[in-house]
Simulated assay, not measured.
Amino acid sequence: MRISAKADYAVRAAAELAASEPGATRTAEELATAQHIPRKFLEAILTALRSAGLVVSQRGLGGGYRLAHDASEVSVADVVRAVDGPLVFVRGERPSELDYQGAAAGLLHVWVALRANVRSVLESVTLADLAAGTLPAEVREMLADDGAWESPDSPSF
Rank of each mutant, 00 (worst) to 15 (best):
residue 92 G to L: 10
residue 61 L to R: 07
residue 100 Y to P: 13
residue 42 L to T: 03
residue 55 V to N: 03
residue 85 G to W: 02
residue 89 F to G: 01
residue 44 A to N: 12
residue 71 A to Q: 05
residue 114 L to G: 08
residue 90 V to S: 08
residue 58 Q to G: 13
residue 127 L to H: 09
residue 42 L to I: 14
residue 92 G to F: 05
residue 77 A to E: 01
residue 37 I to K: 01
residue 31 L to T: 02
residue 109 H to W: 08
residue 102 G to D: 02
residue 42 L to V: 04
residue 109 H to F: 07
residue 38 P to E: 02
residue 60 G to C: 04
residue 94 R to W: 02
residue 75 S to D: 04
residue 110 V to R: 11
residue 91 R to G: 01
residue 68 A to P: 15
residue 36 H to D: 14
residue 29 E to F: 15
residue 53 G to I: 10
residue 94 R to S: 04
residue 119 R to M: 02
residue 132 A to K: 06
residue 109 H to D: 13
residue 51 S to T: 10
residue 112 V to N: 04
residue 118 V to G: 00
residue 42 L to G: 07
residue 108 L to S: 03
residue 124 S to T: 05
residue 48 A to N: 00
residue 36 H to N: 11
residue 107 L to G: 06
residue 97 E to S: 05
residue 51 S to E: 03
residue 109 H to Y: 08
residue 39 R to E: 10
residue 48 A to R: 13
residue 53 G to Q: 07
residue 33 T to D: 13
residue 61 L to P: 09
residue 74 V to C: 09
residue 118 V to Y: 12
residue 52 A to W: 13
residue 44 A to D: 04
residue 119 R to E: 08
residue 130 L to P: 03
residue 51 S to D: 09
residue 99 D to A: 07
residue 106 G to H: 07
residue 50 R to H: 04
residue 117 N to C: 10
residue 134 T to C: 15
residue 127 L to R: 01
residue 93 E to S: 08
residue 33 T to W: 10
residue 89 F to K: 03
residue 92 G to W: 09
residue 76 V to F: 13
residue 131 A to C: 07
residue 115 R to W: 13
residue 115 R to N: 06
residue 47 T to K: 15
residue 62 G to T: 11
residue 68 A to K: 14
residue 37 I to W: 09
residue 112 V to I: 13
residue 67 L to I: 09
residue 82 A to V: 11
residue 123 E to W: 07
residue 105 A to C: 13
residue 90 V to A: 04
residue 106 G to D: 05
residue 60 G to K: 00
residue 105 A to T: 01
residue 36 H to P: 06
residue 97 E to Y: 11
residue 97 E to W: 15
residue 44 A to L: 09
residue 96 S to A: 08
residue 78 D to S: 14
residue 112 V to F: 01
residue 132 A to M: 15
residue 37 I to L: 04
residue 71 A to M: 12
residue 56 V to F: 11
residue 44 A to V: 09
residue 86 P to W: 02
residue 122 L to Q: 01
residue 96 S to Y: 08
residue 75 S to A: 10
residue 58 Q to L: 06
residue 50 R to G: 03
residue 83 V to S: 08
residue 65 Y to W: 14
residue 101 Q to W: 14
residue 60 G to E: 03
residue 130 L to R: 07
residue 75 S to Q: 04
residue 29 E to R: 07
residue 101 Q to K: 02
residue 110 V to F: 13
residue 61 L to F: 08
residue 49 L to I: 05
residue 128 A to K: 12
residue 44 A to Y: 14
residue 65 Y to E: 07
residue 124 S to H: 04
residue 112 V to C: 00
residue 122 L to A: 02
residue 44 A to Q: 13
residue 131 A to P: 06
residue 118 V to E: 01
residue 112 V to Y: 03
residue 79 V to G: 14
residue 128 A to I: 12
residue 58 Q to W: 10
residue 60 G to A: 06
residue 40 K to R: 08
residue 62 G to L: 03
residue 124 S to K: 10
residue 92 G to S: 05
residue 93 E to P: 00
residue 50 R to M: 11
residue 29 E to Y: 11
residue 109 H to P: 01
residue 41 F to A: 10
residue 94 R to H: 00
residue 41 F to T: 10
residue 117 N to D: 05
residue 129 D to Y: 15
residue 33 T to P: 09
residue 104 A to E: 13
residue 43 E to S: 14
residue 87 L to V: 05
residue 84 D to V: 02
